[in-house]
Amino acid sequence: MLFRDRADAGRQLAARLEHLRAQEAVVLGLPRGGVPVAAQVAAALAAPLDVVVVRKLGVPGHRELAMGAIGEDGAAVHSPDVVRRAGVAPAALEEVEARERAELDRRVRRLRAVAPRLPLAGRTAIVVDDGVATGATARAACAVVRALGAVRVVLAAPVCATDAVRRLTAEGVEVVSVATPRPFGAVSAHYAHFGQVPDEEVVALLRAARQEAE
């Protein structure tokens, strides 16, 4: 195991991001699992904490396999090779995307009621997740923050698959991680404790960070 839990992972990751302390950065966690990691990073860097809301598009019948992802403001990325190998018809892809868009919109409404979006124009965006396997969700998140005006995008995760790192860097994203194990396996395999993160915990972390900044 590399990490005890997400808080431990966040502290280890923050040590790799010290070079961004003076970069006018905003730390953006991916709800839900990325937010406890991001909270540790934001605290260590004395940077504001926000979220970037995205949803993975899982292959029907194999929802853990990502065939793309969607984000706020209509951002979407697809993995044609996964769609082709899984034999997903266009209508099925549209159905999955519509369902996930509805859930994404619900989360955006709830989270933005607590934490209005922080401006990113001209700033460095540090997008944080608890791990990166396929990179589809991370790509969507990076597309969102770029659309919102971030001039530098850094994807930070405690553990990343090497294939995902290659894809992200090829698209101009800086990637910072604690480990890139091979073989990778599941993100959860690298944590001793990797429970579900409820919406209430995400809301509490965001509220605490905003109150601390006041």
Rank of each mutant, 00 (worst) to 15 (best):
F3W: 06
R4Q: 11
D5F: 10
A7M: 10
A7E: 13
D8V: 03
Q12K: 15
Q12G: 11
L13P: 02
A15V: 11
R16V: 10
L17S: 05
L20E: 03
R21Q: 04
E24Q: 15
E24M: 10
L30T: 03
V35G: 08
V35D: 09
A39S: 09
Q40M: 12
Q40G: 01
Q40H: 01
L45V: 09
A46W: 05
L49I: 12
D50H: 06
V52Y: 07
V52G: 00
V54I: 10
V54M: 02
V54N: 03
K56W: 10
L57R: 10
G58A: 04
V59S: 01
G61N: 08
H62C: 08
L65D: 02
M67H: 02
G68Y: 04
G74W: 00
A75T: 00
A76W: 06
H78P: 03
S79N: 14
D81T: 15
V82T: 03
V82H: 00
G87L: 12
A89Y: 07
A91G: 14
A98R: 15
A102N: 06
L104Q: 12
L104I: 12
D105Y: 08
R109K: 15
L111Y: 15
A115G: 04
A115T: 01
L118I: 00
L120F: 08
I126F: 04
V128M: 04
D129I: 10
G131A: 13
G131Y: 15
T134V: 05
A136W: 10
A138Q: 07
R139T: 02
G149D: 04
V151E: 14
R152C: 03
V153M: 00
P158C: 09
V159A: 06
V159I: 07
C160H: 01
A164D: 01
A164S: 10
R167F: 00
L168S: 05
L168G: 10
E171G: 12
G172L: 01
V173M: 05
E174T: 11
V175Q: 13
S177L: 03
A179Y: 00
P181Q: 10
A192N: 03
H193N: 08
F194W: 00
V197R: 01
V197H: 05
D199A: 13
E200I: 11
V202N: 05
V203G: 00
A204L: 14
R207E: 11
R207L: 06
A208E: 12
R210K: 13
Q211R: 15
Q211Y: 11
E214N: 08
